[in-house]
């Protein structure tokens, strides 16, 4: 778990230092996910601040959520994706997620859901440590980049008005 504030991230740096940002971009060009996780602070069950300086894009977020190779979300969650067949039923529906949870709460659940529930089956999409037997091809890589997390948060926040569609008893999962 990156201890909040313990690691200086290229991401955060890049906001102030364009040269470093460029270097970081070049370094990561060959391996899109191999960035040091941006630092973040967990407070009151949420990560209030975005992981990047750029606001997330809901349209890109929707695509990530629906892509089984990328977000993997629909393997476990159902949601308002009429075009997607074979949605799983292991986790709460994504419908109404934006009503049930704040952006910061959504962000924490994506970054590291074990901070909400240590037993969760939700993979931590922005964590590279405390994992076992990760093959070299995936080692040190987060499931999503900081920018992709922000895209997904932005998209999920648009899923409103269906709070009652959720399954509160499975919320913790």
């Amino acid at each position: 778990m990156p201890k909040p504030g313990s690691r200086r991230s290229r991401m955060m740096f890049s906001v102030d230092r364009p040269a470093l940002a460029l270097a970081s971009l070049l370094l990561s060009a060959g391996c899109a996910f191999a960035e040091d996780p941006a630092r973040y602070v967990i407070e009151n069950g949420a990560i209030a601040s975005p992981l990047t300086g750029q606001p997330g894009d809901p349209a890109r977020g929707r695509k990530i959520v629906a892509e089984r190779q990328k977000g993997l979300c629909l393997l476990c969650h159902q949601g308002p994706f009429p075009e997607e067949r074979f949605q799983g039923d292991l986790a709460p529906t994504l419908a109404g997620a934006g009503s049930r949870l704040s952006e910061g709460e959504l962000r924490l659940r994506l970054v590291d859901g074990t901070k909400v529930n240590p037993e969760t089956i939700m993979p931590s999409y922005y964590r590279t440590d405390h994992l076992q037997r990760v093959p070299p091809a995936f080692a040190g890589r987060t499931l999503l980049t900081a920018a992709e997390i922000e895209d997904v948060v932005a998209f999920l926040s648009t899923l409103r008005d269906e709070a009652k569609a959720g399954n509160p008893s499975k919320e913790a999962k």
């Binding site: 393997l75 074979f86 799983g88 039923d89 089956i121 993979p123 990760v134 890589r141």
Partner: peptide, 22 residues
Amino acid sequence: MGQLNFSCAQCHDDNAGGHLGS
């Protein structure tokens, strides 16, 4: 285990009978 961080038991004990995708 793994990047997705699942144990066998989490699926096959805790969620047996559920659906992963279809």
